[in-house]
Amino acid sequence: MFELTVKDEFAAAHYLRNYPGACERPHGHNWKVEIAVCGTELNEIHVLIDFKDLKRFLKEVLEELDHRDLNEHPAFQDKNPSSENIARFIFENLKEKLAPYPVKLVRVSVWETERSCASYLAE
C-alpha cells in the first residue's frame, strides 16, 4: 500500500453560531490543509498519482473557500463552519475529483492554528 500526502492553505473568516465564547464573534484563520490518498497499484510511470494533479485538485477545492466568510458559503448555511465541517466539505469535494483515479482519499486534516487540527477520515 502506498500513501501520498500534499498540503496547501487558505485564508477565511468564520464564526460559530451558538458558541459560548469568543469564537461566536467573526474572526479569521490561515487554515492549513493536508490530504492523504492511498492505493496499491502504480501507473505506467511508477507513480500512484502525479503530485501535480493532487495539488491542483486540492487547490481547486480550496479556491472556493479562500478569502470568504465561510458562514455565507452555501455548504455552511445549516451547520457551523467548524474545522470538522470544513474538513468534511474538502473531503467530499476532493473525493469527486479523484473518482477517475485508482486512489482512495483516506484523510483530510484542517488546522486552524499550529496546535489545533480536525481530520475527516474515510470510512
Rank of each mutant, 00 (worst) to 15 (best):
M1R: 13
M1H: 12
M1C: 03
F2R: 13
F2W: 09
F2M: 05
E3W: 05
E3T: 04
L4P: 00
T5R: 15
K7W: 12
D8R: 15
E9M: 11
F10Y: 06
F10H: 15
F10G: 04
F10P: 01
A11F: 11
A12T: 10
A13F: 08
A13L: 11
H14V: 14
Y15F: 15
R17N: 12
P20A: 13
P20Y: 13
A22L: 15
R25C: 12
R25H: 15
R25F: 14
R25Q: 09
P26L: 14
H27N: 13
G28N: 04
H29C: 06
N30V: 14
V33Y: 01
V33W: 10
A36G: 15
C38K: 14
G39C: 09
G39Q: 06
G39M: 07
G39V: 03
T40W: 09
T40Q: 14
T40E: 14
N43I: 06
L48Q: 05
D50R: 07
D53I: 13
L54G: 08
L54F: 00
L54H: 01
K55Y: 05
R56D: 08
R56C: 01
R56H: 10
F57T: 02
L58C: 02
V61K: 08
L65T: 04
L65N: 02
L65D: 00
H67K: 13
R68W: 01
N71R: 10
N71W: 04
N71Y: 02
E72T: 08
H73M: 00
H73L: 02
F76C: 00
Q77Y: 03
D78R: 12
K79A: 12
K79F: 04
P81L: 08
S82T: 10
E84W: 00
I90L: 11
F91C: 03
E92Y: 05
N93F: 05
L94D: 03
L94V: 07
K95A: 13
E96T: 13
E96R: 14
K97G: 00
K97F: 01
A99F: 04
P102E: 11
P102Q: 08
V103A: 02
K104W: 07
K104D: 03
L105Y: 04
L105I: 07
R107D: 05
R107L: 11
V108Y: 00
V110G: 02
W111L: 07
E112G: 05
E112D: 07
E112M: 03
T113I: 08
T113G: 06
T113N: 11
E114Q: 14
S116P: 04
C117W: 03
A118V: 08
A118P: 00
A118N: 10
A118S: 09
Y120R: 03
Y120N: 01
A122K: 11
E123L: 06
